[in-house]
């Protein structure tokens, strides 16, 4: 046996030919419709999709029409098939996307979701037509909703997931009024990466929510504060406490921040850290999704352990004795 036989053989990937919006496209077998579309420059909005996570295809904003399919299909997870005929901009597709955006915008606070304003405009979504948003419920109320019969809905207000922000530790906050239930945090905390399983989806239907067991506060839960859930949250529902505090104080200046890639000092694994710096102060830490070692993930030390650098003040500098 020779050494070069000892590396895994990459199964040679065949090419699949399909039609997207009338144009012939050739992509490797196994490519998703989404990637095939993007390869030809057709952009499709996504919310619950992230390349490092298993697609759950729950937000349905990426749906497209596939000839022969009774219903629309999620482009983020469906693999291309030979001779598939895909339409990305039909009235049917645009209608479903518009409605998904309206459903979300009328029930969830999307103010910290990138791109969503532009999508709402381009799909002519009118979330206000379901009525004024119902006021947020008291803290903990949504966490204790029983499964089964629910009380009759309001005839004047549109139901929302509005609720107070959960601030129960110094590292990150959970603002579930901004949660679109994309499952990404559950996946990142679960089998996709962290395998801590501190959170799961609890309840059912519109009352479904991300929860710890019995909705206990994070310090009582299994959470290990790796922040890998924050890293994948698309709507700002999960946020560094440092960012949250800056935003509350009106001092969050994203445009002025620099992002510098370096290596975490805390062990020999060599995780790449992206330091987001504002006014010579680290305000949050991420890791690139395409990094071989981390796939965007870090541990508590890498994600939050930087504060000591800033705790040094000029005056605290070691003296010469």
């Amino acid at each position: 046996m020779s050494a070069d036989q000892l590396v895994p053989l990459q199964a040679s990937r065949r090419t699949v030919e399909l039609t997207i919006d009338g144009d012939p496209v050739r992509v490797p077998e196994g490519t998703t419709i989404l990637d095939a579309c993007r390869s030809k420059g057709t952009d499709i909005p996504t919310l619950c999709y992230l390349k490092t996570l298993h697609p759950v295809n729950v937000c349905r904003v990426c749906v497209v029409e596939v000839e022969g399919s009774r219903v629309l299909v999620p482009s983020c997870s469906r693999a291309v098939e030979p001779a598939m005929v895909v339409t990305t901009g039909s009235d049917r597709v645009r209608h479903s996307r518009k409605m998904v955006l309206e459903f979300l915008a009328s029930s969830v606070d999307l103010s910290a979701t990138p791109d969503v304003e532009a999508w709402l405009t381009s799909y002519a979504a009118r979330p206000e037509r379901y009525g004024p948003a119902a006021p947020p419920v008291a803290a903990g109320e949504r966490d204790s909703l029983p499964t089964g019969h629910h009380p009759p809905p309001s005839t004047t207000h549109a139901a929302t997931v509005g609720q107070p922000v959960k601030v129960d530790n110094e590292l990150y906050v959970r603002d579930y009024g901004k949660c679109i239930l994309c499952y990404k945090c559950v996946e990142a905390c679960g089998t996709d990466f962290q395998n801590t399983f501190a959170i799961a989806v609890a309840g059912r239907g519109f009352d479904a929510r991300i929860s710890t067991e019995f909705a206990v506060e994070l310090p009582k839960s299994a959470c290990v504060y790796c922040g890998n859930c924050i890293a994948v949250c698309p709507t700002g529902a999960l946020m560094f406490k440092s960012e949250f505090d800056h935003r509350q104080a009106g001092t969050w200046k994203e445009a002025e921040q620099t992002v510098t890639a370096t290596i975490c000092p805390y062990c020999g694994v060599g995780c790449t850290l992206e330091l987001h710096v504002q006014d010579n102060e680290i305000v949050k830490v991420s890791s690139p999704l395409d990094h071989e070692v981390t796939s965007g993930n870090l541990c508590i030390k890498g994600r939050f352990g930087w504060r000591y650098v800033q705790n040094r003040k000029a005056a605290d500098n070691p003296r010469t004795s």
Partner: peptide, 26 residues
Amino acid sequence: WCETEGTVTNSERRVQRVRKALDPPG
């Protein structure tokens, strides 16, 4: 790891860059 430039080597012998993101204090 955040106030200077250079390289480090991880456990799998991967040499990677560290970069300066902050000015050191004082």
